[in-house]
Design a protein around this nucleic acid. Structure first.
Lengths: 336, 336
DNA sequence: CACCACGATGTTACACGTAACATACCAGTA
DNA sequence: TACTGGTATGTTACGTGTAACATCGTGGTG
């Protein structure tokens, strides 16, 4: 008989209940809080659950509009170390608070972001953490009707739907380039990739610092995603286009590191011939020789504060701080 | 009246239907395949859906044992580049096939893995991709009762629940160390971190190569998670413990790169004084000076093949190849 | 001994999209 | 005209855990 779809149904609460001779309500109580049933019953149920290999089923409780104790996290890319650190910060908090996380990424595309948000919301998550500040109209509409707290993390400059937590990317670029200029570098080029909003803000900060000092802003940019080898490529391009530069400011540590490697390969001394600075303060930049100058950002802290705020708002606390700026540090290292 | 939980309910299919004056079944049809309703109706529904900001609700279809068109991916760590590349390979396939992915990580802990698997299964995913080969008894029981295809990726050596796709980590270690020995290095030390199963298999491969050549195996290991700075630390420890080494084989590129940096800081020449090799073939190792010798693994391919196999099995295809070995390449670079 | 309080378990109703079947209507054809 | 086939929409029943309320029994107290 049974063709290939002989899917034996999963055991339900009723199956567990039948095995013991009680109602499923008793099993439900046990699973949510074992102390709600008698000691005898606890043992019996534990055995039955184990024996049947009962797997919880979220569907029914999602139907009733109860809280799901799950939150959604949407990051643009998993390949970017920045986000894995932010996620660690988030999960340290959510885990302690008994929340599950549903993680998704969208490759910097607003359309895919929309699709992912729809997917996450369709599971009745209690809150949503985004990392971008540009969304499609439908995304905004869905977020509004979902009536779920939303926080955008990473940047505090661009306008937020409800609440933004992160750093001032514009000022980060400005401060780092100002520090380079103060050290005497004049011919500084900006290297950018993956032209997302944060990259653009850092570029603007760079431009402001150059202008203030009467220096000419120059940039070499691509829409390709960042990588170490891309940093090397971009340095080559830069040297061709602007042979007499004395410094480069990269939108992130990956590009900067790749540029450093390429200098080493070409026998260009850092920082004597060219100064190089990055953004974020990743482990590899600090291990490298020379240590990479960088804008050190509090990635894990951003995640932590974001999760704390989100859970507070899920619990009904009012939204008090629309923007939380967690600051950054300029690290000079050995490369500028 | 309404206290803080004035949650206005989300619009349901019924709400959309009421707005137009049809039954929700018509809306349901439209959402699954617009061509199933008349052209007139399509326009009206599109407007109504947009106006209400309708968000799909997965709960009811999860209740009926229909396929969810979602698969779960469980990786030990997001910080590890390896897995973000594997995930990219998976999603290229799942996206094309119309499957959504639910991503989770568990920090190399079997208990957290169990918890995450329970979470994923509770959403009625159609298939499950794991990356580890050691599981708790309850994990195995749940997988069995869930009756969902499972694939373990990354390693082909350790025993699989149903199907394993990846590379032979033992042989990877063996081949790389053999290559180093062939080049004349004799005093090779193994550097390991995060002692998961793959790290251990590579160690065993290393040991076999050393033994076969009458050389003594030595290792410096820690349970701490891999990082660039840890590579530097371990190199220092190694030099203290074994001053006259002429080569090190690291369990991954991160450690190897950190070790290279530390050598540069100490003025140790690579490979003249010490040869260094890693594992995986990451971008940064290939950009670095010197280019890092490494075991190049087909991460994206592993993800791709895994997803293809999983979807085939979800569609009822029989499991034919219990183990799929996708091979690796020994890359000599400039560091050995 | 009667009654209360409380702990333990049972009963009922509900959430919402979809498969399967039913109906209504229309054009086309013998 | 009667009948066929097909399209568009409606009707019904279903899946499963939980909140809210109901019931039962027991030990303690006046």
């Amino acid at each position: 008989m049974m063709k290939k779809n002989n899917k034996k149904k999963r055991p339900t609460l009723q199956d567990v209940a039948n095995l013991i001779g009680v109602t499923k309500m008793t099993i439900s109580r046990y699973l949510r809080d074992p102390s709600k049933v008698s000691a005898d019953m606890q043992k019996k149920i534990a055995v039955a659950v184990e024996e049947l290999g009962y797997i919880p089923n979220r569907a029914p409780e999602l139907l009733s509009n109860a809280k799901s104790h799950a939150i959604g996290i949407l990051v643009p890319s998993l390949a970017n170390q920045v986000f894995s650190q932010v996620i660690r910060g988030i999960e340290r908090v959510t885990e302690a608070a008994g929340y599950q996380t549903m993680l998704a990424h969208y490759g910097y595309s607003a359309e895919r972001e929309e699709e992912r948000i729809s997917f996450l919301l369709s599971y009745h998550i209690d809150g949503l953490i985004l990392s971008e500040s540009q969304h499609t109209p439908r995304t905004l509409k869905m977020i509004a009707t979902a009536d779920v707290p939303v926080i955008e993390m990473m940047d505090t400059v661009s306008p937020a739907i409800e609440q933004a937590i992160g750093i001032d990317n514009f000022d980060g670029g400005y401060q780092m380039v100002s520090a380079m200029i103060e050290k005497g570098y004049k011919n500084i080029v900006y290297l950018g990739a993956r032209l997302d909003i944060r990259t653009q803000l850092r570029l603007q900060g760079y431009e402001k610092a150059m202008q203030e000092n009467g220096l000419q802003a120059k940039s070499v940019m691509t829409e390709a995603p960042s990588s170490f080898s891309l940093g090397a490529d971009l340095l080559q391009k830069t040297l061709t286009k602007y042979p007499q530069i004395d410094g480069i400011f990269c939108t992130n540590d990956d590009l900067a590191t790749g540029a450093v490697f390429e200098c080493q390969r070409q026998g260009i001394r850092i920082p004597q011939d060219i100064a190089i600075a990055g953004f974020h303060g990743h482990d590899f930049g600090q291990s490298m020789v020379p240590k990479l100058a960088t804008v050190v950002t509090p990635r894990e802290k951003i995640g932590q504060v974001t999760a704390e705020q989100l859970i507070a708002r899920i619990n009904g606390d009012p939204l008090t701080e629309k923007i939380i700026d967690l600051g950054f540090e300029i690290y000079h290292g050995e490369s500028i």
